[in-house]
């Protein structure tokens, strides 16, 4: 092979390699730029559904971050949102519509709708979340974060 053709050949290889290399960079970057289909999780507040999804005197367990939260619409159509993790031994609590209380089935722990532990084993109240309404939807968020 003479020098001239060898150089040409090498240059072609270099050009091809560079193009492939650029491709290997541009491909992931362009995919990165496409916004993901899952809507941006807004960690400040969680959309827990429409007001009309909740019947009077009922509740829903929703997932807030890694932990469950309970959203209650009470008899007066006031909404309450609390962590749903019992402060006794971490069972998930539920809403008792007959007494309008939050109830932990594990050892009969009872909280009021403000989250105060009012009877049974739970040593501490449940944390309350802030509730906001927007376009007929309910959003809950952590209170006073730094």
């Amino acid at each position: 092979m003479n020098k001239q053709t060898r150089k040409k050949f090498l240059d072609t290889l270099l050009g091809g390699g560079l193009i492939a290399w650029l491709g290997a960079i541009i491909y992931p970057v362009s995919r990165y730029l496409v916004p993901p289909r899952t809507p941006d999780i807004n960690p400040d507040s969680l959309d827990v559904g429409k007001v009309s999804d909740f019947q009077t005197n009922s509740a829903k367990i929703v997932r807030f971050g890694r932990k469950p939260a309970i959203v209650v619409r009470d008899k007066n159509d006031t909404f309450h949102a609390l962590t749903a993790v019992c402060t006794h031994l971490d069972c998930t609590v539920q809403y008792k519509s007959d007494t309008e209380q939050i109830w932990c089935a594990c050892h009969n722990g009872i909280y009021d709708l403000q989250g105060n532990n009012i009877s049974g084993p739970p040593p501490r109240p449940l944390t309350q979340f802030k509730i906001n309404f927007k376009n007929g939807k309910i959003f809950i968020s952590r209170e006073n974060m730094a």
Partner: peptide
């Protein structure tokens, strides 16, 4: 404080590459 961690998590789990 309420978004930094979540957004990095979002980047590494939801955003392609």
């Amino acid at each position: 404080a309420t978004t930094a961690f979540e957004s990095v998590k979002f980047i590494i789990t939801k955003v392609q590459f």
